[in-house]
């Protein structure tokens, strides 16, 4: 009893320096934190502010509060629903293709074959091409209905060339963006495959697992973490695909290939409706956060195991 009573005053001074140290630490951290806050909070606040304002760049008479009308106008706009759907298709399509194909190719590139080093460099190289450049490359060099490589190939076998970007704009965009992101998926997944313990595969062989069973029960579970990481990183970037759309289809025909990012751009800088664009921006932030929350939870669970 006596001892316990005496211990309390001893404990108190221990707490005080650590408290002081914490304030000191916070003080030293503050420039970085404040800079970051300005960096992200000010644009966010301005977006929120504009989204409830009447604000059109070509009509200075439109001023004052709009209330929720910018949001109502946006959410009831059929273009917005289309853009939302297009975003989902673009993100989902590219994810399926890059992760699916990426896993298969990673397994293939893990085998030893002649010229594997060169092949690996080649398969990674699209990642180093800028989005605008690769979009131009696909649009003019590969898919152009008159002098594109694919058109030439189709003509060579007697088929009529297809104007891919106007006939199947969204599917073509999915293809182009997948081409850009496949190397990333392969890179991550190949590294992950190479960390698989060779004795595990041998144990599976002894247990009677053929190549398919090994893939299904050994390699795929081993890759699950890397796959989650690929999905998360790609999703963040794919939600904001812009350059490819701007260069190839400009969101068209109509709004057939307009995603959320491009819709906001077209509202603000093609229709000069800053208020409406800001409302779109806020909606995009909300969506991105919902997706991020789901992904983070999935990743956290996967990394824990």
């Amino acid at each position: 009893m006596d001892q316990a009573a005496r211990r309390i005053p001893v404990a108190a001074p221990v707490g005080r320096p650590s408290h002081a140290r914490r304030t000191g630490g916070a003080l030293l951290l503050s420039p970085a934190v404040i800079l970051l806050l300005i960096w992200s909070l000010v644009p966010l606040a301005m977006t929120l502010w504009y989204s409830v304002r009447r604000y059109n760049l070509v009509d200075p008479t439109q001023v004052g509060f709009a209330g929720a009308s910018n949001y109502v106008y946006l959410l009831t706009d059929p273009d917005f629903i289309t853009a939302l759907l297009n975003t989902a298709i673009l993100v989902g399509g590219v994810l399926v293709i890059t992760v699916g194909l990426g896993t298969l190719l990673a397994v293939l590139f893990d085998q030893s074959f002649l010229g594997r080093g060169i092949a690996r460099v080649l398969v990674i190289s699209p990642f180093f091409v800028m989005p605008t450049v690769s979009a131009l490359l696909w649009k003019n060099l590969m898919l152009h209905p008159i002098y594109g490589v694919y058109s030439a190939m189709m003509r060579a076998v007697g088929l009529t060339p297809v104007d891919w970007l106007s006939r199947y704009p969204l599917a073509t965009l999915v293809m182009i963006v997948s081409w850009e992101w496949l190397p990333f998926a392969i890179l991550i997944l190949l590294t992950a495959i190479q960390s698989l313990d060779a004795e595990q595969k041998e144990a599976a062989r002894m247990d009677g697992a053929g190549p398919l069973a090994q893939f299904r029960y050994i390699i795929l579970p081993h890759l699950s973490r890397a796959i989650t990481v690929v999905i998360m990183i790609e999703t963040i970037f794919l939600l904001a695909v812009f350059a490819e759309i701007s260069v190839t289809t400009a969101g068209g025909p109509g709004v057939a290939s307009t995603n959320l990012a491009f819709l906001i751009y077209s509202r603000a800088l093609l229709q000069f409706d800053v208020g409406g664009a800001s409302a779109g921006g806020v909606v995009a932030i909300v969506i991105a956060n919902i997706v991020a929350a789901f992904l983070l939870r999935a990743v956290a669970r996967n990394l824990e195991a």
């Binding site: 313990d197 004795e199 595990q200 041998e202 144990a203 599976a204 062989r205 002894m206 247990d207 009677g208 697992a209 029960y217 050994i218 579970p221 081993h222 699950s224 195991a305």
Partner: peptide, 30 residues
């Protein structure tokens, strides 16, 4: 003959257990 057809079982130095399967599933795999 392939490793599975020979009817042998091997215990590896690193144990080579399947990390994502529990003990039951590890033993059940073959």
């Amino acid at each position: 003959k392939g490793p599975a057809e020979r009817g042998l079982a091997m215990v590896f130095q690193s144990y080579a257990l399947y990390p994502h399967m529990n003990v039951y599933r590890n033993m059940e795999f073959s």
